[in-house]
Protein backbone atom coordinates (compact mmCIF):
# COMPACT_ATOMS: atom_id res chain seq x y z
CA UNK A 1 0.00 0.00 0.00
CA UNK A 2 1.20 3.52 -0.80
CA UNK A 3 -0.18 6.98 -0.12
CA UNK A 4 -1.40 7.43 -3.70
CA UNK A 5 -3.44 4.24 -3.64
CA UNK A 6 -4.76 5.04 -0.13
CA UNK A 7 -5.82 8.53 -1.24
CA UNK A 8 -7.34 6.97 -4.35
CA UNK A 9 -9.37 4.49 -2.33
CA UNK A 10 -10.51 7.20 0.08
CA UNK A 11 -11.50 9.42 -2.84
CA UNK A 12 -13.48 6.54 -4.31
CA UNK A 13 -15.14 5.86 -0.96
CA UNK A 14 -15.91 9.58 -0.58
CA UNK A 15 -17.56 9.65 -4.01
CA UNK A 16 -19.74 6.64 -3.21
CA UNK A 17 -20.76 8.11 0.17
CA UNK A 18 -21.45 11.57 -1.30
CA UNK A 19 -23.84 10.07 -3.85
CA UNK A 20 -25.57 7.79 -1.36
CA UNK A 21 -26.07 10.66 1.11
CA UNK A 22 -27.24 13.02 -1.64
CA UNK A 23 -29.95 10.59 -2.70
CA UNK A 24 -30.89 9.61 0.86
CA UNK A 25 -31.07 13.13 2.33
CA UNK A 26 -32.65 14.93 -0.60
CA UNK A 27 -34.83 11.84 -1.17
CA UNK A 28 -34.20 12.42 -4.83
CA UNK A 29 -31.94 11.00 -7.54
CA UNK A 30 -32.54 13.82 -10.01
CA UNK A 31 -29.57 14.32 -12.30
CA UNK A 32 -28.04 10.95 -11.41
CA UNK A 33 -27.72 8.22 -14.03
CA UNK A 34 -29.17 4.97 -12.74
CA UNK A 35 -27.49 3.16 -15.62
CA UNK A 36 -24.04 4.19 -14.48
CA UNK A 37 -24.90 3.02 -10.99
CA UNK A 38 -26.03 -0.37 -12.31
CA UNK A 39 -22.76 -0.64 -14.25
CA UNK A 40 -20.75 0.20 -11.12
CA UNK A 41 -22.61 -2.46 -9.14
CA UNK A 42 -21.77 -4.90 -11.95
CA UNK A 43 -18.12 -3.79 -11.86
CA UNK A 44 -17.83 -4.52 -8.14
CA UNK A 45 -19.73 -7.80 -8.42
CA UNK A 46 -17.50 -9.18 -11.18
CA UNK A 47 -14.31 -7.85 -9.60
CA UNK A 48 -14.81 -8.95 -6.00
CA UNK A 49 -15.88 -12.55 -6.58
CA UNK A 50 -12.67 -13.56 -4.78
CA UNK A 51 -13.82 -11.68 -1.68
CA UNK A 52 -14.13 -14.88 0.34
CA UNK A 53 -11.47 -16.97 -1.37
CA UNK A 54 -8.52 -14.58 -1.65
CA UNK A 55 -7.93 -12.75 1.64
CA UNK A 56 -5.47 -9.86 1.23
CA UNK A 57 -6.04 -7.78 4.39
CA UNK A 58 -8.83 -6.55 6.65
CA UNK A 59 -8.69 -3.21 4.86
CA UNK A 60 -9.02 -4.86 1.44
CA UNK A 61 -11.96 -7.05 2.46
CA UNK A 62 -13.71 -4.26 4.37
CA UNK A 63 -13.47 -1.83 1.45
CA UNK A 64 -14.72 -4.45 -1.01
CA UNK A 65 -17.74 -5.10 1.20
CA UNK A 66 -18.43 -1.38 1.63
CA UNK A 67 -18.23 -0.77 -2.11
CA UNK A 68 -20.56 -3.68 -2.84
CA UNK A 69 -23.13 -2.72 -0.19
CA UNK A 70 -23.13 0.98 -1.09
CA UNK A 71 -23.40 0.42 -4.84
CA UNK A 72 -26.34 -1.95 -4.48
CA UNK A 73 -27.95 0.37 -1.92
CA UNK A 74 -27.65 3.24 -4.41
CA UNK A 75 -29.22 1.19 -7.19
CA UNK A 76 -32.00 0.12 -4.81
CA UNK A 77 -32.73 3.72 -3.76
CA UNK A 78 -32.80 4.87 -7.38
CA UNK A 79 -34.95 2.15 -8.88
CA UNK A 80 -37.22 1.34 -5.99
CA UNK A 81 -37.42 3.73 -3.04
CA UNK A 82 -37.08 7.01 -4.90
CA UNK A 83 -38.08 5.71 -8.31
CA UNK A 84 -40.47 8.63 -8.79
CA UNK A 85 -37.53 11.04 -8.85
CA UNK A 86 -35.48 9.02 -11.32
CA UNK A 87 -35.08 11.00 -14.55
CA UNK A 88 -35.38 8.15 -17.07
CA UNK A 89 -36.08 10.57 -19.93
CA UNK A 90 -32.53 11.87 -19.77
CA UNK A 91 -30.84 8.63 -18.72
CA UNK A 92 -31.03 7.05 -22.15
CA UNK A 93 -27.51 5.76 -22.83
CA UNK A 94 -27.73 2.16 -24.11
CA UNK A 95 -25.88 0.03 -21.54
CA UNK A 96 -25.61 -2.86 -23.99
CA UNK A 97 -23.41 -0.64 -26.19
CA UNK A 98 -20.90 -0.81 -23.33
CA UNK A 99 -21.40 -4.25 -21.81
CA UNK A 100 -21.25 -6.25 -25.07
CA UNK A 101 -18.00 -4.79 -26.53
CA UNK A 102 -16.38 -4.82 -23.08
CA UNK A 103 -17.43 -8.43 -22.61
CA UNK A 104 -15.98 -9.38 -25.98
CA UNK A 105 -12.71 -7.55 -25.30
CA UNK A 106 -12.37 -9.27 -21.93
CA UNK A 107 -12.43 -12.62 -23.75
CA UNK A 108 -9.83 -11.49 -26.27
CA UNK A 109 -7.39 -9.50 -24.14
CA UNK A 110 -6.71 -10.86 -20.68
CA UNK A 111 -3.91 -12.25 -18.52
CA UNK A 112 -5.36 -15.72 -18.12
CA UNK A 113 -8.24 -17.47 -19.84
CA UNK A 114 -10.04 -18.57 -16.67
CA UNK A 115 -13.54 -17.52 -15.55
CA UNK A 116 -12.33 -15.49 -12.54
CA UNK A 117 -9.64 -13.72 -14.57
CA UNK A 118 -11.98 -12.94 -17.48
CA UNK A 119 -14.59 -11.56 -15.07
CA UNK A 120 -11.91 -9.44 -13.37
CA UNK A 121 -10.77 -8.16 -16.79
CA UNK A 122 -14.40 -7.47 -17.72
CA UNK A 123 -14.78 -5.40 -14.53
CA UNK A 124 -11.63 -3.41 -15.30
CA UNK A 125 -12.74 -2.59 -18.84
CA UNK A 126 -16.32 -1.88 -17.76
CA UNK A 127 -15.24 0.49 -15.01
CA UNK A 128 -13.34 2.54 -17.59
CA UNK A 129 -16.57 3.35 -19.47
CA UNK A 130 -19.21 2.98 -16.72
CA UNK A 131 -19.38 6.75 -16.17
CA UNK A 132 -20.40 7.42 -19.80
CA UNK A 133 -24.17 7.24 -19.15
CA UNK A 134 -23.73 9.79 -16.36
CA UNK A 135 -21.62 12.16 -18.49
CA UNK A 136 -24.06 11.66 -21.37
CA UNK A 137 -26.99 12.53 -19.08
CA UNK A 138 -25.29 15.73 -17.92
CA UNK A 139 -24.60 16.69 -21.55
CA UNK A 140 -28.30 16.14 -22.32
CA UNK A 141 -29.60 18.14 -19.35
CA UNK A 142 -26.81 20.69 -19.88
CA UNK A 143 -26.15 21.02 -16.16
CA UNK A 144 -25.41 19.12 -12.95
CA UNK A 145 -26.19 19.79 -9.31
CA UNK A 146 -23.15 20.96 -7.39
CA UNK A 147 -23.22 17.88 -5.15
CA UNK A 148 -23.25 15.64 -8.25
CA UNK A 149 -20.21 17.48 -9.63
CA UNK A 150 -18.38 16.89 -6.33
CA UNK A 151 -19.28 13.21 -6.66
CA UNK A 152 -17.86 13.12 -10.18
CA UNK A 153 -14.71 14.98 -9.16
CA UNK A 154 -13.99 12.50 -6.35
CA UNK A 155 -14.80 9.57 -8.63
CA UNK A 156 -12.54 10.84 -11.40
CA UNK A 157 -9.74 11.66 -8.97
CA UNK A 158 -9.71 8.10 -7.58
CA UNK A 159 -8.50 6.50 -10.81
CA UNK A 160 -6.15 9.42 -11.54
CA UNK A 161 -4.53 8.73 -8.15
CA UNK A 162 -4.37 5.03 -9.04
CA UNK A 163 -2.34 5.93 -12.13
CA UNK A 164 0.17 7.68 -9.86
CA UNK A 165 0.09 4.57 -7.64
CA UNK A 166 0.92 2.35 -10.65
CA UNK A 167 3.86 4.57 -11.63
CA UNK A 168 5.05 4.47 -8.01
CA UNK A 169 4.70 0.66 -7.81
CA UNK A 170 6.49 0.21 -11.13
CA UNK A 171 9.53 2.12 -9.86
CA UNK A 172 9.51 0.75 -6.33
CA UNK A 173 8.34 -2.87 -6.85
CA UNK A 174 8.66 -3.40 -10.59
CA UNK A 175 4.93 -4.24 -10.45
CA UNK A 176 2.68 -3.26 -13.33
CA UNK A 177 -0.57 -4.52 -14.76
CA UNK A 178 -0.95 -3.34 -18.34
CA UNK A 179 -4.69 -4.04 -18.51
CA UNK A 180 -5.45 -2.01 -15.38
CA UNK A 181 -3.11 0.80 -16.48
CA UNK A 182 -4.50 1.17 -20.01
CA UNK A 183 -8.12 0.99 -18.79
CA UNK A 184 -7.32 3.40 -15.94
CA UNK A 185 -5.88 5.92 -18.40
CA UNK A 186 -8.94 5.67 -20.65
CA UNK A 187 -11.19 6.09 -17.60
CA UNK A 188 -9.34 9.19 -16.39
CA UNK A 189 -9.20 10.74 -19.87
CA UNK A 190 -13.00 10.53 -20.06
CA UNK A 191 -13.16 12.87 -17.05
CA UNK A 192 -10.79 15.51 -18.46
CA UNK A 193 -13.56 17.59 -19.98
CA UNK A 194 -15.47 17.45 -16.70
CA UNK A 195 -12.35 18.22 -14.62
CA UNK A 196 -11.85 21.38 -16.70
CA UNK A 197 -15.44 22.50 -16.13
CA UNK A 198 -15.28 21.58 -12.45
CA UNK A 199 -12.10 23.57 -11.80
CA UNK A 200 -13.09 26.60 -13.89
CA UNK A 201 -16.71 26.73 -12.69
CA UNK A 202 -17.68 24.79 -9.61
CA UNK A 203 -14.61 25.85 -7.62
CA UNK A 204 -15.57 29.44 -8.36
CA UNK A 205 -19.00 28.87 -6.91
CA UNK A 206 -20.78 28.75 -10.24
CA UNK A 207 -23.31 26.14 -11.33
CA UNK A 208 -21.83 23.42 -13.53
CA UNK A 209 -23.43 24.08 -16.90
CA UNK A 210 -22.30 22.60 -20.19
CA UNK A 211 -22.15 24.89 -23.19
CA UNK A 212 -25.40 24.05 -24.96
Amino acid sequence: MNIFRLLGDLSHLLAIIILLLKIWRTRSCAGVSGKSQILFALVFTTRYLDLFTNFISMYNSAMKLIYLVCSYATVFLMYFKFKATYDSNHDTFRMEFLVVPVGGLAFLVNHDFTPLEILWTFSIYLEAVAILPQLFMISKTGEAETITSHYLFALGSYRALYIVNWVFRFYTEGFFDLIAIVAGCVQTILYCDFFYLYITKVLKGKQLTLPA
Binding site: I56, K64, V109, H111, F175, D177, L178
Partner: peptide, 10 residues
Protein backbone atom coordinates in the same frame (compact mmCIF):
# COMPACT_ATOMS: atom_id res chain seq x y z
CA UNK B 1 -0.34 -10.42 -21.93
CA UNK B 2 2.59 -10.50 -19.49
CA UNK B 3 1.34 -11.56 -16.12
CA UNK B 4 2.37 -9.36 -13.21
CA UNK B 5 -0.68 -10.19 -11.19
CA UNK B 6 -1.07 -9.65 -7.48
CA UNK B 7 -4.77 -8.67 -7.31
CA UNK B 8 -4.07 -6.77 -4.12
CA UNK B 9 -5.73 -3.61 -5.41
CA UNK B 10 -9.38 -2.67 -5.08
Amino acid sequence: LPQMQKKDEL
